[in-house]
Design a protein around this nucleic acid. Sequence first.
DNA 1: CCCTATTAGTTACAGATGAAACCAATGTCC
DNA 2: GGACATTGGTTTCATCTGTAACTAATAGGG
Lengths: 163, 163
Amino acid sequence: MSSARAKYPTGSDLVLERFLPYRLSTLSNRISRAIAGAYERRFNLTVPEWRVIAVLGRAGTLSARDIAEATQMDKVAISRAVARLERAGRVRGETDAADARRLLLRLTARGAELHARIAPLALSYEQALLAALAPTERRALDAILNKLSAAAQRIEAPMADAP
Amino acid sequence: MSSARAKYPTGSDLVLERFLPYRLSTLSNRISRAIAGAYERRFNLTVPEWRVIAVLGRAGTLSARDIAEATQMDKVAISRAVARLERAGRVRGETDAADARRLLLRLTARGAELHARIAPLALSYEQALLAALAPTERRALDAILNKLSAAAQRIEAPMADAP
DNA sequence: CCCTATTAGTTACAGATGAAACCAATGTCC
DNA sequence: GGACATTGGTTTCATCTGTAACTAATAGGG
């Protein structure tokens, strides 16, 4: 009764603009690019570096391994970010006395100062985004992101097997 | 009355795990990686290529410019994706008779077949994600993503100026 | 103890990505 | 109708990112 070639119920056709993974990806990219651009211009800081600063700013001292866990970045990315941050005098690392493999990292005074300057900007950007939502939506979003993250981790792709 | 160094109201401290851009980025990356891995293994297809196929599968014939608009990818990415797709015999392009700059692209029979095989998988993956949400949340998510995308486009970063 | 397995982190290489330069065709304005 | 700007698309180059190989140090099991 509806459209001619309605082999599927309405909406089961794949329309990219409505496809959740696509929407998430473009939204996230847009936001990341805005942030990355601003950090780069103003602080000569990449996003991985900023993440390292953010977690160190809160935790005080962490090993690279701890940072990997806290930021979801892999060790290579962290190694590189830390190398740049050390060169810039923003982070300082010393080997753990108890385990010579571990490198204990912390912010230098300069790094801490940078953290203190960036954090409010980041939060204000976040607020600007959230301002577009109704209070109920803000609350819903929190739950939704948690559920989607859990689901994404659980399934990892239903098409992962079988040719 | 609460914590010692409560210079800010609770929650105004930057905690990466609660920071919206970070949460979106990790969620989107996780999903993208799952999808990209599956497409690569099963179809030897990258995500940009898949997007091109998806829009061509629906629209029939499009120029590269049209695809850029529909997929939010830039022309370079499209040029590369199309080049690979043509080599694989999945897409075919001919120059527009009315404007010799334009390249009109469409799926080949093989490309259409591929599209028919992938689209249901993509949709089932999406359903698997959405299954984690309550019906009200699914509806809310749609509105939220629209609002956030619009906001992200509008603001582009409040910290974009001033040193 | 010593030999092997595991863990922390770095290095090396390769493929992906993005910005800018580039080429070709069309539109525009005098 | 010819210069100049604009648009569609590709190529180039430099950087980023991810995977795998590597080094160094500790843990564990006989």
